[in-house]
Write a protein that binds this DNA or RNA. Structure first.
Lengths: 223, 223
DNA sequence: AAAAGTATTTAGGCTAGACTAATTTTAAAG
DNA sequence: CTTTAAAATTAGTCTAGCCTAAATACTTTT
């Protein structure tokens, strides 16, 4: 018996929540609830099931952590999602703000065979349209040496390497000010108190909100 | 609120059952149950729901018939299914016996936008890999002037135009004896009592079971 | 260390869609 | 025209996932 759509979504969600922090503590049920837009009680129930099935280890009132099996499944879902996104952009002329919604549904429907066929057809890509790395068939994902735009020093010239989890509206806005994957930009000034960041893109000056800048990952310009 | 996977499957099923006969009578619940592999009671329940939602008209103990709305939705599902099948074969190197299972799942997950993007990418195909016509965006489907292989006279030369609803195993068997879409063949002899039909394909002689021959639609060889 | 606040779990319900078993309706056969 | 068989419906369960409301367990503040 294979995992349901709900189970797949929970595992992917837990993966994303436990990933960045590297904390000792497990993922809190409240965090899962708010990210998936479900009631906390629903999470409690589902966690119990996931634990029974060996996808997560769970300590009540402490938190959840993926088991090896659970992490594998989560990474498989991420692979599916990103391969689908890349395929839609490369082969079916989707814009980068349109792919997420479509992939969110398709990732639960496609077979492994189809994912691999798309991946091969694209020439085994390593990144999706937002610059996020695609795990390989064994669930191994290369992490990139990138840093958040908010950490770049004033005056530095960088290029856009990745955008994490932004809404279609925000992505369209970024497009409208000239930002795209691999695009070069220079940080002119950073306002204090997490204020707006002034960017020079194509010789134009734009003020970018701090919260959006947190999602932009850049690398040093080496060209 | 859009239709669930279950509703979509029921409507598609009813469409296929009411299509060939053109009978006055509606489709019987038992036929639906056996085709979908569910209990008759489940069909009764679902039919009531479909009727409430305006997808079918229903007379207890008599039969079901699609409404205009229901037929539109059924044709939309068939379009999705066949476009997906054609795309998988043309662009992702699927074999004709592999596409049905994949399309069966995907048809409930893809957006209209994606179906149309695939259709355009293929150059607006009119038929799927099994020769079945693809309804256009308005649900209009061209019917072909074809006849069943079992109705072809002995000695006649025809070519394969369409194969209806066969299992992957049977499709692989047909491939193994040299049959493919558009392939020419000659009916040598037809055994009585719905017995096997002897076919000449590529100068080889093969005996084909009557039940399989019923699913093969052919047209006169005009080349 | 008690009170207040927050996070989590339990208890009990709901819906969709399936099931089995029992009943009712219609159709077919003697 | 009555008996029998087949088809369809009703009644009552079940499971997966969600929900709200109430109870419990931690955490922080005073």
């Amino acid at each position: 018996m294979s995992a349901s759509k709900a189970i797949e979504d929970y595992l992917k969600c837990i993966y994303k929540l436990e990933d960045p922090s590297q904390t000792e503590k497990g993922v809190h049920t409240s965090a899962i609830a708010s990210r998936l837009n479900v009631a906390q009680a629903s999470v409690s129930n589902m966690i119990k099931k996931l634990s029974d099935q060996g996808f997560v280890s769970y300590e009540p009132y402490y938190g959840v952590a993926l088991t090896t099996t659970g992490r594998q499944l989560a990474l498989q879902m991420i692979r599916r999602h990103r391969v689908i996104e890349q395929y839609l952009v490369e082969r079916l002329h989707y814009a980068w703000d349109e792919v997420d919604a479509e992939a969110e549904v398709l990732e639960h429907a496609v077979s492994d065979k189809l994912v691999d066929a798309m991946w091969e057809a694209l020439g085994r890509p390593t990144h999706d349209p937002h610059g996020s790395p695609i795990p390989d068939q064994d669930g191994i994902m290369s992490e990139q040496p990138v840093k958040a735009l908010v950490d770049v020093a004033e005056g530095e010239q960088v290029k856009l390497a990745r955008i994490k989890n932004r809404s279609p509206e925000e992505l369209r806005y970024l497009t409208s000010i000239g930002l795209a994957m691999g695009e070069g930009l220079r940080v002119k000034t950073k306002a204090p108190f997490n204020g707006p960041i002034m960017l020079e893109i194509n010789n134009e000056l734009h003020a970018l909100d701090y919260r959006i800048a947190q999602a932009l990952m850049v690398e040093r310009q080496h060209d």
